Computed example of a mutant assay.
Amino acid sequence: MTQTNGTERMQHLLTLDGLPRAQLIELLDRAQQFADGHVDRAALAGTAVCTLFFEPSTRTRMSFQLAAQRLGADVLNFDVSTSSARKGETARDTLRNLEAMGMSGFVVRHQDDGAVAALAESAEPGTALINAGDGRSAHPTQGLLDMLTLRQAKGGDFSRLKVLIVGDVRHSRVARSDLHALRTLGATEGGQGIEIRVCGPQSLLPQDHTLDGCIVSHDLDAALEGVDAVMMLRLQRERMEEGLISSLDEYHRDYGLTQSRLRRAANDAVVLHPGPINRGVEITDEVADGPQSLILRQVANGVAVRMAVLERVLRR
């Protein structure tokens, strides 16, 4: 499913995989302008946006709502628990009915891989869809806000960075979008560039080509040596089969980020986490709330990034 129309204008945002470097940087630049307070509060006046979430969410849903409101859009919040989806209505029929009411922008979260792209295929030509997370596939706005946060802390040249992603990559759509963005922003013409390390138990690492080009390790202490940024991931127990980890205590022992472990990273290393945090499992309180943590800045940047994306796909 293409994300652009015939004039190369971005019509949807479904994935960061294959998104041109120039477009990715333009979105980050625009998000930074919004983060700095330069907001046109009438940019989307008269535009109706629906947050169409078939899975629970706090940060993503709320920040999209706030982003749309700050740009002057009318916002409709879809609640699957009180909708006709409970009566068997398909996601496609839900979309088409909301389109008939005049909705032109849809922020969609769905539990199935590829579900948002499938809805985009069936949407009317003037409708824009933004993927707010589908299955294990992609979470492009989370990837963008992670890149904005990292750029603010480390500057725009990603090619010299050492970035470590830790934890449940197998079930993480965030990790996939982060990897797509890091590869795009950290590439150099000579083939050298960003060093991406991935660490986790073998049972929680993907068995496909997701980690191509990454340095894979099962030893967190070794993987942390000298890194500039650590991206911790939540254990997604709701997506796991039984037996992938022996126990939460053992997982924390082997892969939990503690203050003493963090000292192995570069002195100015930063810590990111997409949330929600499992405190005491993948990260301790002293790290999550410590001076090297950018977790709340990620949350704040989520509003700015989602404003940039909404403006890009919906402003005529």
Rank of each mutant, 00 (worst) to 15 (best):
M1K: 08
Q3E: 12
Q3T: 08
T7P: 00
L13Y: 11
T15Y: 11
L16D: 07
D17H: 14
G18L: 13
P20K: 12
I25Q: 13
E26A: 15
R30L: 15
R30D: 14
Q33E: 15
A35W: 06
G37P: 03
R41W: 01
A42E: 14
A45F: 12
V49E: 01
V49W: 00
E55W: 06
P56T: 13
S57A: 04
T58Y: 07
R61F: 09
S63M: 04
Q65H: 14
V80P: 00
S83P: 09
K87S: 04
G88W: 02
A91Q: 06
A91C: 07
A91D: 06
A91S: 11
T94K: 00
R96V: 12
R96G: 02
N97S: 15
L98F: 14
G102L: 12
V107I: 15
V108P: 00
H110F: 03
D113S: 06
A115E: 09
A117D: 12
E121I: 00
S122M: 11
A123D: 08
P125V: 04
P125L: 09
P125E: 04
T141G: 10
Q142R: 05
D146C: 10
T149L: 05
Q152V: 03
A153F: 00
A153K: 13
G155P: 02
G156A: 15
S159F: 04
V163Y: 01
V163W: 03
V163Q: 02
S172G: 01
D178V: 07
H180E: 14
R183I: 07
A187I: 03
G190N: 14
G193T: 08
I194A: 04
I194E: 04
P201G: 00
Q202M: 12
L205K: 08
P206S: 13
D208G: 12
D208I: 05
T210V: 15
G213L: 10
S217Y: 05
H218L: 08
L220A: 00
D221C: 07
A222C: 09
A223G: 10
A223L: 02
L224W: 06
D228I: 04
M232F: 06
R234H: 07
E238F: 11
G243A: 14
S247V: 09
D249N: 09
D249E: 14
D254C: 12
Y255S: 02
Y255H: 10
R263V: 15
R263F: 13
A266H: 14
A269P: 02
V271G: 09
N278R: 14
R279P: 07
G280T: 02
V281R: 08
V281P: 05
I283R: 05
T284D: 13
T284V: 15
D285Q: 09
E286N: 08
V287H: 00
S293V: 06
I295Q: 00
L296P: 06
V299P: 02
A300D: 13
G302A: 07
G302V: 11
A304M: 06
R306T: 05
R306E: 05
V309N: 02
V313P: 04
V313L: 08
